[in-house]
Deep mutational scan, measured.
Amino acid sequence: PTIVLKVSPEELKALEKAGVEIEKIEKNEDGELYITLTPEALKKAGFE
């Protein structure tokens, strides 16, 4: 199962800087950012 999270541009930068593997980055028509994370990326980021 993949996880989709709504993030701010600042959060996205912080995640990328931390080396979190982001599978997909999407922006909706309201300009909101959503990222898709794999279970492996979540484990690496410390989420179980």
Score class of each variant (00 low, 15 high):
Pro1Thr: 12
Pro1Leu: 13
Pro1Ser: 11
Pro1Asn: 10
Thr2Tyr: 11
Thr2Leu: 13
Thr2Asp: 10
Ile3Arg: 10
Ile3Leu: 06
Ile3Met: 10
Ile3Val: 13
Val4Ser: 09
Val4Trp: 04
Leu5His: 05
Leu5Ala: 06
Leu5Ile: 12
Leu5Lys: 14
Lys6Asn: 08
Lys6Val: 09
Val7Lys: 01
Val7Met: 06
Val7Pro: 01
Val7Gln: 01
Val7Ser: 02
Val7Gly: 01
Ser8Phe: 04
Ser8Trp: 04
Ser8Asn: 08
Ser8Gln: 05
Ser8Asp: 05
Ser8Arg: 06
Pro9Thr: 12
Pro9Gly: 09
Pro9Lys: 10
Glu10Asp: 13
Glu10Trp: 06
Glu10Pro: 04
Glu10Lys: 10
Glu10Arg: 09
Glu10Ile: 13
Glu11Ser: 08
Glu11Tyr: 15
Glu11Gln: 15
Glu11Trp: 15
Glu11Pro: 00
Leu12Asn: 00
Leu12Trp: 06
Leu12Glu: 00
Leu12Met: 07
Leu12His: 03
Lys13Gln: 09
Lys13Met: 13
Lys13Phe: 10
Lys13Val: 10
Ala14Phe: 15
Ala14His: 13
Ala14Gly: 09
Ala14Pro: 00
Ala14Asn: 05
Ala14Trp: 15
Leu15Met: 10
Leu15Tyr: 13
Leu15Trp: 12
Leu15Asp: 00
Glu16Tyr: 13
Glu16Arg: 11
Glu16Ser: 09
Glu16Leu: 09
Glu16Lys: 11
Lys17Glu: 08
Lys17Gly: 08
Lys17Leu: 10
Lys17Asn: 08
Ala18Trp: 14
Ala18Pro: 00
Ala18His: 09
Ala18Lys: 15
Gly19Arg: 06
Gly19Ala: 05
Gly19Tyr: 04
Gly19Asp: 05
Gly19His: 08
Val20Lys: 00
Val20Leu: 10
Val20Gln: 01
Val20Gly: 01
Val20Cys: 06
Val20Trp: 03
Val20Ile: 14
Glu21Asn: 07
Glu21Arg: 06
Glu21Lys: 06
Glu21Met: 06
Glu21Leu: 06
Ile22Cys: 03
Ile22Gly: 01
Ile22Arg: 00
Ile22Val: 07
Glu23Leu: 08
Glu23Thr: 08
Lys24Glu: 06
Lys24Ser: 13
Ile25Glu: 02
Ile25His: 03
Ile25Asp: 00
Glu26Met: 08
Glu26Gly: 06
Glu26Asp: 09
Glu26Leu: 07
Glu26Gln: 09
Lys27Val: 13
Lys27Cys: 14
Lys27Trp: 13
Lys27Phe: 14
Lys27Leu: 12
Lys27Gln: 11
Lys27Arg: 13
Lys27Pro: 07
Asn28Ala: 13
Asn28Cys: 14
Asn28Tyr: 07
Asn28Lys: 11
Asn28Gln: 09
Glu29Asp: 12
Glu29Lys: 12
Glu29Gln: 11
Glu29Val: 12
Asp30Ala: 10
Gly31Ala: 03
Gly31Ile: 01
Gly31Lys: 04
Glu32Ser: 14
Glu32Lys: 06
Glu32Arg: 05
Glu32Ile: 07
Glu32Gln: 08
Glu32Pro: 04
Leu33Lys: 01
Leu33Thr: 12
Leu33Ile: 14
Tyr34Met: 09
Tyr34Thr: 10
Tyr34Gln: 08
Tyr34Ala: 06
Tyr34Ile: 14
Tyr34Val: 12
Ile35Met: 02
Ile35Leu: 07
Ile35Val: 13
Ile35Thr: 01
Ile35Trp: 00
Ile35Arg: 00
Ile35Pro: 00
Ile35Ser: 00
Ile35Cys: 04
Thr36Lys: 04
Thr36Trp: 14
Thr36His: 13
Thr36Cys: 07
Thr36Ala: 04
Thr36Leu: 04
Thr36Asp: 02
Leu37Cys: 04
Leu37Asp: 00
Leu37Lys: 00
Leu37Tyr: 02
Leu37Ser: 04
Leu37Ile: 11
Leu37Gly: 01
Thr38Ile: 03
Thr38Asp: 05
Thr38Pro: 03
Thr38Ala: 04
Thr38Val: 03
Thr38Cys: 06
Pro39Asp: 14
Pro39Gly: 11
Pro39His: 15
Pro39Val: 15
Pro39Thr: 14
Glu40Asn: 03
Glu40His: 04
Glu40Cys: 06
Glu40Ile: 04
Glu40Gly: 05
Glu40Tyr: 02
Ala41Thr: 04
Ala41Asp: 08
Ala41Leu: 02
Ala41Arg: 02
Ala41Asn: 09
Ala41Phe: 04
Leu42Cys: 13
Leu42Gly: 07
Leu42Ala: 15
Leu42Ser: 07
Lys43Leu: 13
Lys43Thr: 14
Lys43Gln: 13
Lys43Asn: 15
Lys43Tyr: 05
Lys43Asp: 13
Lys43Gly: 14
Lys44Asp: 15
Lys44Met: 02
Lys44Asn: 08
Lys44Tyr: 01
Ala45Gln: 03
Ala45Glu: 03
Ala45Phe: 05
Ala45Met: 09
Gly46Trp: 04
Gly46Ile: 05
Gly46Arg: 04
Gly46Gln: 04
Gly46Tyr: 03
Gly46Asn: 03
Phe47Leu: 15
Phe47Trp: 07
Phe47Ser: 08
Phe47Glu: 09
Phe47Ala: 10
Glu48Met: 02
Glu48Asp: 11
Glu48Gln: 03
Glu48Val: 03
Glu48Trp: 01
Glu48His: 02
